[in-house]
Amino acid sequence: MTDKLSTLAEGFVIVPADNMDHLDQARSDIFKLTREVFKISEMNPSSGFNDFHRHIESCTPGQFNSMRVELIKRITAEVDVSKLVFDAFEETITKLLGPDILAQRGCNLVLQPPGDPNPSELHRDAPANSPYEIVVWVPLVDCYKSKSMYILDVNATNTCLELLEKNPSDWDAFEDHSRRLAHTPSVPYGSALIFFTGLLHGSEINREAETRVSLNIRYKNLFSPSGLKNQLQFFKPLKISNLAKLGASLELKEHFR
C-alpha cells in the first residue's frame, strides 16, 4: 500500500481513512441535511443512503433535481466537507501533495439511484484542471460493480488517448476501448479512491439494487500550477507550512525595502 501510494505508478490508489471519526462526522452531517431536504424518516446513514431511491419514488425528475441542488447548497453552506475529508485522509493527502495544501471550496455530492440514466460520462479532469491536482473520491456507502465508478490507469489512459488522436471523429471506438481497459474498483465506506486528474474515468448506469452516494473533492499543493481554475476562487487554503509563511514574510520585507 505504502509503495503504491508513494509511487502512484498506476495514477490511482485506494486507501483506508487515517481517521474514521472525521469521515463519520462528514457522513452524519450530510445525512442529516439529506433527511431534512428529502423528508426521510430513516435514522441510520448507511441504510438511509443505500435505500435513498425508495424515498424519492414519488418525485418527478425535475423535483428530484431541485431538491438535489438545494441539498448541495445547504451542504456547501453548513458543512466543511473538504476539511472533514482532508482530516480523514490527512496522512495520505499530505504524502502526495506536501505540507501546503489547498482544497476545493464547493462540495460535489453524487446521488445515483439504481437505473438513473445520467451517469458521469467518460472524461478526464486535466486539462483543463491542473495536472498536479488529486481527486479524492469518497463513497458514503459501500460501492462495487456498477454502483462504483470506473477508471483507467496511466498506461490505459495514454493508449486510449492515442487511439482518439488517430481517430478524432470516432468517439464510440474510443469509449468502447476505454471501457474494455477500465478498472471498476470496489471501494467500501471508510476508504477513498484517490487519483491523478489526468486519468480517464466515469460511471455506468447503476444496475445494483442500492443508491450510490459519493463525494469528490479536489486538492492541490499551494504552489503547483493551477490549470484554468482561478486558484483563489476555486480553492481555499487548508494547511500552510511555516516555511511558506517565512518565505512570504521575507518577500514582503524585500518588496518594501
Partner: peptide
C-alpha cells in the same frame, strides 16, 4: 500573503 504569492506565481 502565502496564498496571494502562490496565486501570483
Amino acid at each position: 500573503l502565502p496564498v496571494f504569492l502562490a496565486y501570483f506565481y
